[in-house]
Design a protein around this nucleic acid. Structure first.
Lengths: 197, 197
DNA sequence: CGCGACATGTAAGCCGTTACATGATTGC
DNA sequence: GCAATCATGTAACGGCTTACATGTCGCG
Protein backbone atom coordinates (compact mmCIF):
# COMPACT_ATOMS: atom_id res chain seq x y z
CA UNK A 1 0.00 0.00 0.00
CA UNK A 2 1.25 3.42 -0.74
CA UNK A 3 0.41 6.72 0.84
CA UNK A 4 -1.88 7.61 -2.04
CA UNK A 5 -4.70 5.44 -0.79
CA UNK A 6 -4.31 6.92 2.66
CA UNK A 7 -4.68 10.36 1.12
CA UNK A 8 -7.80 9.27 -0.73
CA UNK A 9 -9.14 7.95 2.57
CA UNK A 10 -8.50 11.23 4.35
CA UNK A 11 -10.03 13.18 1.48
CA UNK A 12 -13.20 11.13 1.82
CA UNK A 13 -14.07 13.17 4.89
CA UNK A 14 -13.90 16.45 2.99
CA UNK A 15 -11.53 18.77 1.14
CA UNK A 16 -8.00 19.09 2.44
CA UNK A 17 -4.83 20.92 1.47
CA UNK A 18 -1.39 19.35 1.37
CA UNK A 19 -0.58 21.17 4.55
CA UNK A 20 -3.66 19.75 6.26
CA UNK A 21 -2.72 16.24 5.24
CA UNK A 22 0.85 16.74 6.33
CA UNK A 23 -0.36 17.59 9.80
CA UNK A 24 -2.85 14.78 9.94
CA UNK A 25 -0.12 12.33 9.06
CA UNK A 26 2.44 13.70 11.46
CA UNK A 27 0.03 14.06 14.36
CA UNK A 28 -1.48 10.62 14.08
CA UNK A 29 0.51 7.68 15.32
CA UNK A 30 -1.94 5.39 13.56
CA UNK A 31 -1.14 6.67 10.07
CA UNK A 32 2.26 5.16 9.45
CA UNK A 33 3.83 8.06 7.59
CA UNK A 34 5.97 10.85 8.91
CA UNK A 35 4.01 13.54 7.14
CA UNK A 36 6.90 14.68 5.01
CA UNK A 37 6.23 17.13 2.25
CA UNK A 38 7.94 15.30 -0.51
CA UNK A 39 5.58 12.39 -0.61
CA UNK A 40 2.43 14.32 0.08
CA UNK A 41 2.75 17.05 -2.53
CA UNK A 42 3.99 14.62 -5.15
CA UNK A 43 1.15 12.25 -4.44
CA UNK A 44 -1.40 15.04 -4.66
CA UNK A 45 -0.06 16.02 -8.06
CA UNK A 46 -0.17 12.40 -9.19
CA UNK A 47 -3.69 11.85 -7.90
CA UNK A 48 -4.82 14.99 -9.64
CA UNK A 49 -3.19 13.99 -12.92
CA UNK A 50 -4.99 10.65 -12.68
CA UNK A 51 -8.30 12.41 -12.29
CA UNK A 52 -8.96 11.08 -8.82
CA UNK A 53 -9.07 14.51 -7.20
CA UNK A 54 -10.26 17.99 -8.01
CA UNK A 55 -8.01 20.88 -7.20
CA UNK A 56 -9.48 24.12 -5.88
CA UNK A 57 -6.96 26.92 -5.64
CA UNK A 58 -7.89 29.44 -3.01
CA UNK A 59 -6.25 32.84 -2.99
CA UNK A 60 -7.31 34.82 0.08
CA UNK A 61 -7.00 38.60 -0.23
CA UNK A 62 -3.90 38.62 1.95
CA UNK A 63 -2.34 35.31 2.72
CA UNK A 64 -0.62 32.31 1.20
CA UNK A 65 -2.51 30.47 -1.48
CA UNK A 66 -3.70 27.01 -0.62
CA UNK A 67 -4.85 24.20 -2.84
CA UNK A 68 -7.83 22.26 -1.62
CA UNK A 69 -8.26 18.76 -2.96
CA UNK A 70 -11.54 16.90 -3.20
CA UNK A 71 -12.36 13.39 -4.36
CA UNK A 72 -13.84 13.11 -7.83
CA UNK A 73 -16.36 10.33 -8.52
CA UNK A 74 -13.46 8.39 -10.05
CA UNK A 75 -11.50 8.98 -6.85
CA UNK A 76 -14.34 7.72 -4.73
CA UNK A 77 -14.60 4.68 -6.94
CA UNK A 78 -10.86 3.98 -6.64
CA UNK A 79 -11.11 4.32 -2.88
CA UNK A 80 -14.09 1.96 -2.75
CA UNK A 81 -12.22 -0.59 -4.80
CA UNK A 82 -9.30 -0.48 -2.46
CA UNK A 83 -11.55 -0.69 0.58
CA UNK A 84 -13.12 -3.88 -0.67
CA UNK A 85 -9.87 -5.54 -1.71
CA UNK A 86 -7.93 -7.98 0.45
CA UNK A 87 -6.84 -6.14 3.62
CA UNK A 88 -3.13 -6.20 4.51
CA UNK A 89 -1.88 -7.67 7.73
CA UNK A 90 -0.47 -5.32 10.34
CA UNK A 91 3.28 -5.23 10.91
CA UNK A 92 4.91 -5.01 14.28
CA UNK A 93 8.60 -4.33 14.26
CA UNK A 94 10.53 -4.10 17.46
CA UNK A 95 14.22 -3.42 16.92
CA UNK A 96 14.72 -4.36 20.56
CA UNK A 97 14.32 -7.97 19.47
CA UNK A 98 17.44 -7.74 17.36
CA UNK A 99 19.32 -6.27 20.29
CA UNK A 100 18.16 -9.00 22.61
CA UNK A 101 19.36 -11.61 20.14
CA UNK A 102 22.85 -10.19 20.49
CA UNK A 103 22.54 -9.64 24.20
CA UNK A 104 24.70 -12.53 25.30
CA UNK A 105 27.51 -10.05 25.21
CA UNK A 106 25.88 -8.27 28.16
CA UNK A 107 25.98 -9.04 31.85
CA UNK A 108 22.72 -9.64 33.66
CA UNK A 109 22.86 -6.10 34.98
CA UNK A 110 23.52 -4.54 31.60
CA UNK A 111 20.72 -6.54 30.06
CA UNK A 112 18.30 -5.43 32.74
CA UNK A 113 19.42 -1.87 32.22
CA UNK A 114 18.69 -2.14 28.51
CA UNK A 115 15.20 -3.44 29.23
CA UNK A 116 14.66 -0.79 31.85
CA UNK A 117 15.56 2.00 29.44
CA UNK A 118 13.29 0.48 26.84
CA UNK A 119 10.46 0.39 29.33
CA UNK A 120 11.09 4.00 30.24
CA UNK A 121 10.96 5.08 26.60
CA UNK A 122 7.73 3.21 26.11
CA UNK A 123 6.29 4.93 29.18
CA UNK A 124 7.25 8.36 27.88
CA UNK A 125 5.84 7.59 24.47
CA UNK A 126 2.50 6.61 25.95
CA UNK A 127 2.41 9.81 27.98
CA UNK A 128 3.25 11.79 24.87
CA UNK A 129 0.45 10.13 22.94
CA UNK A 130 -2.06 10.82 25.68
CA UNK A 131 -0.99 14.45 25.78
CA UNK A 132 -1.32 14.68 22.02
CA UNK A 133 -4.75 13.11 22.14
CA UNK A 134 -5.88 15.66 24.72
CA UNK A 135 -5.05 18.78 22.79
CA UNK A 136 -5.11 17.33 19.28
CA UNK A 137 -7.58 18.87 16.93
CA UNK A 138 -9.66 16.42 15.04
CA UNK A 139 -10.76 15.97 11.51
CA UNK A 140 -14.39 16.88 10.84
CA UNK A 141 -16.31 13.66 10.88
CA UNK A 142 -19.78 13.37 9.50
CA UNK A 143 -21.27 10.30 11.01
CA UNK A 144 -21.41 8.81 14.47
CA UNK A 145 -20.00 5.61 13.00
CA UNK A 146 -16.98 7.40 11.61
CA UNK A 147 -16.36 9.17 14.93
CA UNK A 148 -16.41 5.83 16.72
CA UNK A 149 -13.93 4.35 14.26
CA UNK A 150 -11.60 7.32 14.44
CA UNK A 151 -11.59 7.13 18.21
CA UNK A 152 -10.84 3.41 18.32
CA UNK A 153 -8.04 3.86 15.82
CA UNK A 154 -6.47 6.65 17.76
CA UNK A 155 -6.59 4.72 21.01
CA UNK A 156 -4.89 1.74 19.50
CA UNK A 157 -1.23 2.81 19.30
CA UNK A 158 -1.02 3.61 23.02
CA UNK A 159 -2.55 0.24 23.77
CA UNK A 160 0.10 -1.46 21.67
CA UNK A 161 2.89 0.37 23.47
CA UNK A 162 1.37 -0.58 26.81
CA UNK A 163 1.18 -4.21 25.80
CA UNK A 164 4.84 -4.01 24.85
CA UNK A 165 5.56 -2.68 28.32
CA UNK A 166 3.82 -5.70 29.79
CA UNK A 167 5.88 -8.00 27.63
CA UNK A 168 9.05 -6.32 28.86
CA UNK A 169 7.94 -6.59 32.47
CA UNK A 170 7.29 -10.31 32.10
CA UNK A 171 10.61 -10.85 30.41
CA UNK A 172 12.46 -9.01 33.16
CA UNK A 173 10.64 -11.02 35.76
CA UNK A 174 11.53 -14.30 34.04
CA UNK A 175 15.15 -13.23 33.73
CA UNK A 176 15.32 -12.31 37.40
CA UNK A 177 13.86 -15.66 38.36
CA UNK A 178 16.46 -17.39 36.24
CA UNK A 179 19.22 -15.56 38.05
CA UNK A 180 18.08 -16.49 41.52
CA UNK A 181 17.45 -20.11 40.56
CA UNK A 182 20.98 -20.56 39.25
CA UNK A 183 22.85 -18.21 41.52
CA UNK A 184 26.49 -19.13 41.42
CA UNK A 185 27.03 -20.45 37.92
CA UNK A 186 30.06 -18.50 36.80
CA UNK A 187 28.19 -16.95 33.90
CA UNK A 188 30.20 -13.82 33.76
CA UNK A 189 31.99 -12.31 36.66
CA UNK A 190 31.38 -8.67 36.60
CA UNK A 191 32.18 -6.27 39.34
CA UNK A 192 31.83 -2.90 37.83
CA UNK A 193 33.85 -3.13 34.68
CA UNK A 194 36.38 -5.21 32.91
CA UNK A 195 34.25 -6.95 30.35
CA UNK A 196 35.80 -5.21 27.39
CA UNK A 197 38.38 -7.06 25.45
CA UNK B 1 18.73 0.82 12.61
CA UNK B 2 19.92 -1.11 9.64
CA UNK B 3 20.14 -4.81 9.04
CA UNK B 4 23.87 -4.79 9.73
CA UNK B 5 23.42 -4.64 13.47
CA UNK B 6 20.94 -7.46 13.30
CA UNK B 7 23.54 -9.50 11.43
CA UNK B 8 26.13 -8.72 14.09
CA UNK B 9 23.61 -9.82 16.72
CA UNK B 10 22.99 -13.12 14.96
CA UNK B 11 26.70 -13.70 14.50
CA UNK B 12 27.20 -13.30 18.23
CA UNK B 13 25.78 -16.78 18.68
CA UNK B 14 28.36 -18.34 16.39
CA UNK B 15 29.55 -18.43 12.78
CA UNK B 16 26.94 -18.21 10.05
CA UNK B 17 26.89 -18.10 6.27
CA UNK B 18 24.85 -15.67 4.22
CA UNK B 19 22.48 -18.47 3.44
CA UNK B 20 22.05 -19.24 7.14
CA UNK B 21 21.26 -15.63 7.88
CA UNK B 22 18.87 -15.41 5.00
CA UNK B 23 16.88 -18.26 6.44
CA UNK B 24 16.97 -16.93 9.96
CA UNK B 25 15.58 -13.64 8.73
CA UNK B 26 12.90 -15.11 6.55
CA UNK B 27 11.78 -17.70 9.08
CA UNK B 28 11.53 -15.35 12.01
CA UNK B 29 8.59 -13.00 12.18
CA UNK B 30 10.39 -11.11 14.92
CA UNK B 31 13.31 -10.05 12.73
CA UNK B 32 11.72 -7.42 10.53
CA UNK B 33 13.49 -8.23 7.29
CA UNK B 34 12.36 -10.40 4.46
CA UNK B 35 15.64 -12.25 4.21
CA UNK B 36 16.40 -11.09 0.70
CA UNK B 37 19.80 -11.85 -0.73
CA UNK B 38 20.62 -8.41 -1.89
CA UNK B 39 20.81 -6.85 1.50
CA UNK B 40 22.41 -9.76 3.29
CA UNK B 41 25.30 -10.46 0.97
CA UNK B 42 26.03 -6.78 0.51
CA UNK B 43 25.98 -6.22 4.25
CA UNK B 44 28.29 -9.14 4.86
CA UNK B 45 30.78 -7.72 2.39
CA UNK B 46 30.52 -4.31 4.02
CA UNK B 47 30.95 -5.70 7.53
CA UNK B 48 33.95 -7.67 6.42
CA UNK B 49 35.51 -4.64 4.76
CA UNK B 50 35.03 -2.70 8.00
CA UNK B 51 36.86 -5.39 9.90
CA UNK B 52 33.88 -6.36 12.02
CA UNK B 53 33.76 -9.93 10.78
CA UNK B 54 36.16 -12.66 9.77
CA UNK B 55 35.44 -14.66 6.66
CA UNK B 56 36.15 -18.36 6.56
CA UNK B 57 35.71 -19.90 3.11
CA UNK B 58 34.85 -23.55 3.29
CA UNK B 59 35.20 -25.76 0.26
CA UNK B 60 33.87 -29.23 0.98
CA UNK B 61 35.19 -32.01 -1.26
CA UNK B 62 31.93 -32.20 -3.18
CA UNK B 63 29.49 -29.37 -2.66
CA UNK B 64 29.01 -25.66 -3.02
CA UNK B 65 31.45 -23.41 -1.24
CA UNK B 66 30.14 -21.48 1.71
CA UNK B 67 31.53 -18.46 3.51
CA UNK B 68 31.28 -18.56 7.25
CA UNK B 69 31.38 -15.24 9.04
CA UNK B 70 32.47 -14.72 12.63
CA UNK B 71 32.63 -11.62 14.79
CA UNK B 72 36.04 -10.08 15.25
CA UNK B 73 36.84 -8.36 18.56
CA UNK B 74 36.06 -5.08 16.79
CA UNK B 75 32.74 -6.56 15.69
CA UNK B 76 31.92 -7.62 19.23
CA UNK B 77 32.80 -4.15 20.43
CA UNK B 78 30.57 -2.51 17.80
CA UNK B 79 27.74 -4.81 18.80
CA UNK B 80 28.24 -4.01 22.48
CA UNK B 81 28.16 -0.32 21.73
CA UNK B 82 24.93 -0.65 19.86
CA UNK B 83 23.42 -2.80 22.60
CA UNK B 84 24.10 -0.15 25.20
CA UNK B 85 22.89 2.78 23.12
CA UNK B 86 19.40 4.23 23.31
CA UNK B 87 16.92 1.50 22.30
CA UNK B 88 14.45 2.32 19.50
CA UNK B 89 10.74 2.25 20.05
CA UNK B 90 8.74 -0.46 18.37
CA UNK B 91 6.57 0.43 15.39
CA UNK B 92 3.12 -0.92 14.78
CA UNK B 93 1.69 -0.22 11.38
CA UNK B 94 -1.76 -1.39 10.50
CA UNK B 95 -2.82 -0.42 6.97
CA UNK B 96 -6.34 -1.36 8.00
CA UNK B 97 -6.44 1.91 9.91
CA UNK B 98 -6.10 3.87 6.69
CA UNK B 99 -8.89 1.85 5.15
CA UNK B 100 -11.16 2.43 8.09
CA UNK B 101 -10.56 6.15 7.82
CA UNK B 102 -11.99 6.05 4.33
CA UNK B 103 -14.71 3.60 5.24
CA UNK B 104 -17.57 6.05 5.27
CA UNK B 105 -18.00 5.07 1.63
CA UNK B 106 -19.07 1.62 2.80
CA UNK B 107 -22.40 0.38 4.06
CA UNK B 108 -22.54 -1.20 7.51
CA UNK B 109 -22.54 -4.61 5.87
CA UNK B 110 -19.53 -3.89 3.67
CA UNK B 111 -17.64 -2.47 6.63
CA UNK B 112 -18.33 -5.53 8.72
CA UNK B 113 -17.24 -7.70 5.82
CA UNK B 114 -13.96 -5.84 5.63
CA UNK B 115 -13.36 -6.36 9.34
CA UNK B 116 -14.38 -9.97 9.08
CA UNK B 117 -11.89 -10.64 6.29
CA UNK B 118 -9.22 -8.87 8.28
CA UNK B 119 -9.97 -11.04 11.28
CA UNK B 120 -9.79 -14.14 9.14
CA UNK B 121 -6.39 -13.19 7.77
CA UNK B 122 -5.12 -12.55 11.26
CA UNK B 123 -6.38 -15.94 12.33
CA UNK B 124 -4.63 -17.68 9.45
CA UNK B 125 -1.43 -15.79 10.14
CA UNK B 126 -1.42 -16.91 13.77
CA UNK B 127 -1.98 -20.50 12.72
CA UNK B 128 0.86 -20.21 10.23
CA UNK B 129 3.18 -18.85 12.90
CA UNK B 130 2.33 -21.64 15.30
CA UNK B 131 2.97 -24.20 12.57
CA UNK B 132 6.28 -22.55 11.78
CA UNK B 133 7.25 -22.54 15.44
CA UNK B 134 6.53 -26.27 15.69
CA UNK B 135 8.78 -27.43 12.92
CA UNK B 136 11.20 -24.53 12.86
CA UNK B 137 14.79 -25.37 13.51
CA UNK B 138 16.49 -23.15 16.00
CA UNK B 139 19.74 -21.36 16.23
CA UNK B 140 22.31 -22.92 18.57
CA UNK B 141 22.05 -21.01 21.81
CA UNK B 142 24.71 -21.18 24.44
CA UNK B 143 23.13 -20.05 27.64
CA UNK B 144 19.88 -20.71 29.39
CA UNK B 145 19.33 -16.97 29.49
CA UNK B 146 19.65 -16.68 25.73
CA UNK B 147 17.26 -19.57 25.18
CA UNK B 148 14.69 -17.87 27.38
CA UNK B 149 15.05 -14.61 25.48
CA UNK B 150 14.81 -16.27 22.09
CA UNK B 151 11.66 -18.07 23.14
CA UNK B 152 9.96 -14.94 24.45
CA UNK B 153 10.87 -13.06 21.29
CA UNK B 154 9.48 -15.75 19.06
CA UNK B 155 6.23 -15.93 20.97
CA UNK B 156 5.68 -12.22 20.72
CA UNK B 157 4.49 -11.75 17.11
CA UNK B 158 1.61 -14.20 17.45
CA UNK B 159 0.57 -12.44 20.65
CA UNK B 160 0.50 -9.13 18.80
CA UNK B 161 -1.66 -10.57 16.02
CA UNK B 162 -4.01 -12.02 18.61
CA UNK B 163 -4.31 -8.71 20.36
CA UNK B 164 -5.16 -7.16 17.00
CA UNK B 165 -7.90 -9.74 16.63
CA UNK B 166 -9.31 -8.70 19.98
CA UNK B 167 -9.24 -5.09 18.91
CA UNK B 168 -11.17 -5.97 15.77
CA UNK B 169 -13.70 -7.98 17.74
CA UNK B 170 -14.33 -5.07 20.09
CA UNK B 171 -14.67 -2.66 17.21
CA UNK B 172 -17.17 -4.89 15.45
CA UNK B 173 -19.12 -5.25 18.63
CA UNK B 174 -19.21 -1.49 19.16
CA UNK B 175 -20.29 -0.95 15.57
CA UNK B 176 -23.06 -3.50 15.89
CA UNK B 177 -24.29 -1.85 19.05
CA UNK B 178 -24.34 1.48 17.26
CA UNK B 179 -26.47 0.00 14.50
CA UNK B 180 -29.10 -1.43 16.79
CA UNK B 181 -29.30 1.73 18.84
CA UNK B 182 -30.01 3.84 15.77
CA UNK B 183 -31.77 1.35 13.56
CA UNK B 184 -33.45 3.09 10.67
CA UNK B 185 -31.56 6.30 10.11
CA UNK B 186 -31.13 6.70 6.37
CA UNK B 187 -27.56 5.75 5.81
CA UNK B 188 -25.35 7.99 3.81
CA UNK B 189 -25.24 7.22 0.12
CA UNK B 190 -22.14 7.78 -1.88
CA UNK B 191 -22.59 11.44 -2.52
CA UNK B 192 -24.11 12.09 0.84
CA UNK B 193 -23.22 14.99 3.04
CA UNK B 194 -23.94 15.87 6.62
CA UNK B 195 -25.89 13.01 8.06
CA UNK B 196 -26.39 15.31 10.95
CA UNK B 197 -27.40 13.83 14.28
C1' DC C 1 12.76 42.35 14.25
C1' DG C 2 12.68 37.68 14.93
C1' DC C 3 10.00 33.50 15.64
C1' DG C 4 6.50 30.24 14.91
C1' DA C 5 2.64 28.83 12.16
C1' DC C 6 0.85 28.65 7.49
C1' DA C 7 1.72 26.95 2.86
C1' DT C 8 4.04 24.73 -1.23
C1' DG C 9 7.49 22.62 -3.26
C1' DT C 10 12.58 20.05 -4.63
C1' DA C 11 17.04 17.26 -3.97
C1' DA C 12 19.67 13.58 -2.40
C1' DG C 13 19.96 9.38 -0.50
C1' DC C 14 18.97 5.14 2.40
C1' DC C 15 16.71 1.03 3.00
C1' DG C 16 14.14 -2.37 1.49
C1' DT C 17 11.67 -5.20 -2.04
C1' DT C 18 11.07 -8.40 -6.15
C1' DA C 19 13.11 -10.43 -9.77
C1' DC C 20 17.02 -12.03 -12.27
C1' DA C 21 21.24 -14.99 -12.71
C1' DT C 22 24.32 -18.98 -11.80
C1' DG C 23 25.60 -23.41 -10.35
C1' DA C 24 26.06 -27.82 -7.43
C1' DT C 25 23.78 -31.65 -4.82
C1' DT C 26 20.05 -34.75 -3.23
C1' DG C 27 16.10 -37.38 -3.93
C1' DC C 28 11.90 -38.95 -6.38
C1' DG D 1 14.70 -35.76 -16.00
C1' DC D 2 12.92 -32.50 -12.71
C1' DA D 3 12.18 -30.28 -8.49
C1' DA D 4 13.81 -28.83 -4.10
C1' DT D 5 17.52 -27.31 -1.32
C1' DC D 6 22.04 -25.42 -0.70
C1' DA D 7 24.78 -21.43 -1.82
C1' DT D 8 26.25 -16.78 -3.63
C1' DG D 9 25.55 -12.97 -5.95
C1' DT D 10 23.41 -8.54 -9.18
C1' DA D 11 19.78 -5.33 -11.36
C1' DA D 12 15.98 -2.48 -11.23
C1' DC D 13 13.02 -0.07 -8.71
C1' DG D 14 9.90 2.11 -5.28
C1' DG D 15 8.78 4.23 -0.92
C1' DC D 16 10.06 6.93 2.66
C1' DT D 17 13.21 10.10 5.18
C1' DT D 18 15.97 14.25 6.13
C1' DA D 19 17.25 18.38 4.61
C1' DC D 20 16.95 22.22 1.60
C1' DA D 21 14.43 26.22 -0.51
C1' DT D 22 10.92 29.91 -0.75
C1' DG D 23 7.49 33.05 0.77
C1' DT D 24 3.48 35.16 3.76
C1' DC D 25 1.24 36.34 8.07
C1' DG D 26 0.50 37.46 13.00
C1' DC D 27 2.45 38.22 17.43
C1' DG D 28 5.38 39.79 21.23
Amino acid sequence: MSIEFAILALLSSGPHSGYDLKKLFSESEALPWSGNNNQIYRSLVALHRSGLTDQDIQQPAEGPARKLYTLTPAGREALREWLTSEPDLPAFRAPIFARLIGSDLLTDEELDQLLSRYDEELRLKVIGLEELARRGRRIELGSERQRLIWQRINDRPAAVYRSEQEWVAELRWALARLQTSAPSLPRRQESGEGVGR
